[in-house]
Design a protein around this nucleic acid. Structure first.
Lengths: 220, 220
DNA sequence: TAGATTGTTAATCGATTAACAATC
DNA sequence: TAGATTGTTAATCGATTAACAATC
């Protein structure tokens, strides 16, 4: 008898959950006990039915006429995302971006702890970055096994990305947060999530180009 | 008589263009003159019809049986994105993330030049970050007008985001690349593009949680 | 009670994929 | 010529939005 574990939540819904979480935390701080989808939607610029559908993926149920319990909703979202217990991760590539991520305090909120960095540059190996040690990438496998770390943040130059990923995979890494522009090849039981800054910039600059051109034509 | 300027390209297509651009540049470097959608698709893990639809938004046309001219395609994508001439931008908030972005060389490829940073912290005002000056945020308006900068990268703490954005808007900024988790309120003639790291991490960690749970059940 | 809100089903919308004629 | 490839139209798929009964 097969359970329906094959069914996963829509990615767009998952992507919106952190925004709900942030709002809910501020509501809790303000002493609010319950909140409606209408209210959430107004704050975030979404229609209420979309909010309701999104929240439903966490398994939470609300009360008609009342709304959702703020605290329960926070718990449900965090549990769904796996942000209840801190997840440890290694940073691979301590250049300016890796450096910045290691120092970013905001990840705590997302249950993510970047516990160490790895690099191949002797200049930086052994240094402390925001209080965290930087090790030689040669030690990655050993450290990953010892500390039972299964998530890696990839911030190496593009040319080194696939090689670094291969080493990470051999060390038992199951999830890679990929900040490089490279399309990584990994086995199906490993998860890769790409942070495509260039994609984001493409949207911004193409829209800006479009906007400025339009205004120019209107003035003419 | 109305032109159909209202029609804009699908956002998903725009978001994929930088990946095509990157591949095409490496093909050009390898001496390739022409390329087919099938080939591009194989490299990037996309079906050929999707590649063709995406490329069509740039206005480029290919030759049946031959494919697309690599150099022409590069030019067309860059023109569409507005990445032909360098776009200057200011960084608002020179914390660890702003610092890292100011030092990131990769933005050159995207026609983006981060020419200066702004902050309110006297400790960092006047410093040079990766060769670029950090000014007081009080000087933002004056500098933006003088240097005719219309794009800003927002990397301040969440609590300061809307206020900083307001100042930027008053200074004539038309496009904000928003790295904060705040939903900014801006007039309709200003473009905001959100870089939601938390959304990306949400996908990664929820999928990892799901994967690990699934494996646990299989072992049981 | 009346009205606001939830949960769910149906309709709409937009993007992806498939099909296929045109063409070099 | 034959076959690969483009450009375009149609079919499919999935997400968003609308409609509405259930409910506190």
């Amino acid at each position: 008898m097969f359970e329906d574990y094959g069914k996963i939540a829509p990615l767009p819904s998952i992507r919106r959950l952190p925004a709900y979480l942030r709002l809910l935390q501020s509501l809790r701080l303000a002493g609010r006990d319950v909140v409606s989808c209408t209210h959430i939607g107004k704050e975030l610029g979404l229609v209420s039915t979309q909010v309701r559908k999104d929240l439903a993926v966490t398994g939470i149920v609300g009360k008609p006429k009342v709304g959702y319990n703020v605290a329960a909703l926070i718990t449900a979202i965090e549990a769904f995302l796996g942000w209840t217990s801190a997840q440890d991760a290694f940073v691979v590539g301590v250049g300016s971006l890796g450096h910045a991520l290691m120092g970013y305090q905001g990840f705590q909120e997302y249950g993510l702890r970047l516990v160490a960095g790895f690099d191949i540059d002797p200049e930086i190996i052994g240094a402390k970055v925001h209080g965290k040690e930087v090790y030689s990438f040669d030690q990655f496998g050993e450290m990953a096994k010892r500390m039972n770390v299964c998530m890696g943040v990839l911030t190496v130059p593009a040319a080194a990305a696939q090689h670094a990923a291969n080493v990470m995979l051999r060390s038992g890494i199951r999830a890679i947060w990929n900040y490089t522009p490279v399309t990584l090849e990994v086995p199906p039981n490993v998860i890769v999530e790409d942070v495509k800054l260039s994609a984001s910039l493409a949207v911004l600059s193409s829209r800006l180009t479009d906007l400025l051109r339009r205004e120019k034509m209107e003035r003419a």
